[in-house]
């Protein structure tokens, strides 16, 4: 066990009660609940979720003094988590756990992720393993380094926040985690997947409604294009623009960057952005037949 105190940041936008209740309940069952200094929920729809959030907190069994709710405009996932991280680190927390409202922690996951991060002196970012279907990106079975970390359940130490300034707010939703991971690597730190810290998060399609899936993927494709524009892969950017148009009939800008600075050549060298494996951004470890 470590003595670090962390904050947990949850960003909601018209979230369902059953998911949020499950998420908060899973925090209340943590073996390392003592390490959780605060749980901050940001309602990204200016109070639209207020009632649901209140009900979920009441049903979760969490001490109400531990939970704080802030409301605001929909500024995107990364910007909202940055706001929460700023609050957290000003209070002196040592790390911040970004947690999706549709995710549920394993009872030992905070204890295990802190133990692992502590063993790495908190030099890097630390992703929990998604359950029951793990992300297909590769992981070194000995060092647990991975090419990038998903933001679904991601521990960001204060030092990493200081070095990177958190998520790039030009990403609205999706791929901000890939971008942050590559910037972490550019700073000479690592991305880790903590296998014994599990988080229930089901991202696979439940049914065979391919039309619904196609539309759901649009923000992801748009974000992937922005990532490619930023990290210098015109070919991937073009492919994503084509894919977006194929699915929606709408063409998207050829360059999404505007004033977003591009990484330096040395950052590119250290980050090793991978655009050769489609939206996995890494070779895949498993196949779907």
């Amino acid at each position: 066990m470590t003595t670090n105190s962390i904050s947990i940041g949850i960003v909601t936008y018209r979230t369902s009660l059953e998911y949020l209740k499950r998420c908060l309940r899973s925090i209340s069952f943590q073996s390392a609940l003592d390490s959780v200094g605060s749980v901050v929920i940001r309602d990204n729809d200016n109070g639209f979720d207020r009632e649901i959030i209140e009900q979920a907190i009441a049903a979760s069994g969490l001490d109400k003094s531990l939970v704080k709710v802030v409301e605001g405009d929909n500024i995107g996932f990364g910007a909202a988590q940055n706001e929460l991280m700023k609050l957290s680190f000003e209070k002196g927390e040592s790390a911040h756990l970004c947690l999706n409202p549709d995710a549920a922690l394993h009872p030992n996951s905070i204890e295990n992720v802190l133990e692992f991060a502590s063993s790495k002196k908190f030099l890097g970012i630390f992703e929990m393993e998604q359950f029951p279907v793990p992300h297909p990106k590769i992981v070194d079975p000995y060092t647990f380094e991975t090419p990038w970390c998903s933001g679904c359940s991601l521990l960001i130490p204060s030092g990493v926040y200081e070095a990177t300034k958190g998520f790039d707010e030009s990403f609205w939703l999706y791929c901000e985690d890939v971008d942050l991971s590559w910037r972490v690597k550019a700073e000479g730190m690592h991305c880790y997947l903590v296998k014994n810290a599990q988080v229930a998060h089901f991202v696979h399609s439940r049914s065979n409604d391919s039309k619904e899936d196609q539309l759901r993927a649009l923000p992801l494709i748009s974000a992937a294009k922005h990532l490619a524009d930023k990290w210098g892969s015109p070919r991937f950017s073009k492919d994503m623009a084509k894919e977006y148009e194929r699915r929606s009939g709408i063409s998207i800008d050829s360059d999404s960057l505007n004033n977003v600075p591009r990484p330096s050549p040395s950052s590119l060298l250290k980050a090793q952005p991978d655009f050769s494996h489609m939206l996995v951004f890494s070779p895949s470890t498993w196949i779907e037949e």
Partner: peptide, 8 residues
């Protein structure tokens, strides 16, 4: 160092 998913 354990088992990992290979195919679905």
């Amino acid at each position: 160092n354990g088992y990992s998913l290979r195919e679905r």
